[in-house]
Every structure is written in C-alpha cells, then in structure tokens.
C-alpha cells in the first residue's frame, strides 16, 4: 500500500464528505425562505430526470439498447411493480435482447 495512493484516497474522502455534510449540520430547515424551500423540494424529481438522461441511453453504442431498458422499466413501474421487480425485470429483458445489439 503506497502512501501516495493513500493520500489521494483520504483527500477524495474529505472533499466528498464535506459537501454532503454541510447542509445537514448547518442548514436549519425551518429558517429556509419559502421560495428556496420550494426549489429544494423540486430538486429530487428534477435530479432524477438528469440522472436518467442521457446516461441510460449511453450504456451501449446503440442507443436503442438503453431505450429498450427505459421503456421496460417505465412499463413495469406503471403496471405497479415495486423497486426490485423493476430493476430485475428490466435487466432480464435486456439480457434476453442483448444478442440483437
């Protein structure tokens, strides 16, 4: 184990932890202005949009592969599947479709 690598890892750990920790420790939820609170409450669903696109389309050279997965996951969700069902269902479908791509 090299000291050089360990220093990089510790540095990465510090700069990753601090932004995650600051709001929880120093931001008092009840003194946030209503407008900012409204924006922060919009963040989860907006973030999901950005976390899915364009990443999901780019997991294979052929965008249709990711697109099939997206359609499958939305379909299983809308049919009422829970988190595990959606994850496993779309992976199984993609594995079956894999030879086509």
């Amino acid at each position: 184990m090299s000291l050089h690598i360990m220093l990089i890892i510790v540095g990465m750990a510090v700069v990753t932890y601090i932004p995650r920790m600051l709001p929880f420790v120093f931001l008092k939820a009840d003194i946030v202005p209503p407008r900012i609170e409204g924006i922060l409450k919009n963040v989860p669903h907006a973030a999901l949009g950005a976390l899915i696109f364009p990443g999901a389309l780019l997991i294979h050279d052929n965008v249709l592969f990711g697109l099939s997965g997206i359609v499958a996951a939305f379909t299983i969700s809308f049919l009422g599947g829970n988190l595990i069902t959606v994850v496993l269902g779309s992976i199984i479908l993609l594995t079956i479709l894999m030879p086509l791509f």
Binding site: H45, L51, A73, S77, G81, L83, V86
Partner: peptide, 27 residues
C-alpha cells in the same frame, strides 16, 4: 437507471409537475 425510473414513475402518475421537472432537467 432502472432504479431511478422506478422511483420517478409513481410520482409521474400523481403530479403533472413531476413530469415537467424531470423532462426539463433531462433535456
């Protein structure tokens, strides 16, 4: 990605606002 979709889909059905947020941010 399937997990993110499974978290988004139920809220999409409930509120028009969620669709606008997610679609705008995706684009």
């Amino acid at each position: 990605y399937a997990l993110f979709i499974a978290l988004l889909a139920p809220a999409l059905k409930r509120q028009r606002k969620v669709l606008v947020l997610a679609a705008a941010s995706a684009v």
